[in-house]
């Protein structure tokens, strides 16, 4: 098996392993779930805010979904297949937030947004 020990095998084997590992990671994390939170200008969770999801690629920008926040101000999108998107939140009387740019490493990556969308309080 000595002929296996050369730099060509090492390099391409290494690349193949890296690709394999990456694909396993992708398969485990590509449910297309986006979780986040909408808060008011004072920082309190906002229920019933509309959150809009916009797709962005090199060529197009188009709306891809809408949802409402629950009682804790949290929202969830499922099953998206995007890698570059914008989130925008608004609620009558509580103002507007965003657009917040979200870039992902692969299409449909699961993501938990750590910074909440903060409504600006304008009407």
């Amino acid at each position: 098996m000595g002929w296996l020990k050369n730099r060509f095998v090492y390099t391409f084997g290494g690349i193949a392993l890296a690709i394999l590992a990456w694909n396993v990671w992708v398969v485990l994390n590509d449910d297309g779930i986006i979780r986040g939170e909408v808060v008011s200008a004072s920082g309190a969770p906002v229920e019933g805010a509309t959150v809009k999801l916009t797709e962005r690629t090199l060529l197009v920008a188009r709306p891809r979904g809408e949802t409402l926040t629950d009682a804790d101000g949290r929202f969830t999108f499922t099953g998206h297949d995007l890698h570059h998107l914008f989130l925008e939140a608004s609620k009558e009387g509580a103002g507007h937030a965003g657009p917040l740019e979200v870039r992902l490493y692969f299409k449909g990556e699961n993501v938990n947004l750590h910074t909440p969308l903060r409504l600006d309080g304008t009407t």
């Binding site: 060529l59 890698h83 570059h84 870039r103 992902l104 490493y105």
Partner: peptide, 12 residues
């Protein structure tokens, strides 16, 4: 630095 341009290209 970030690698998102590569992601963009990959899907484009």
């Amino acid at each position: 630095p970030h690698i998102f341009y590569y992601v963009d290209v990959w899907y484009a």
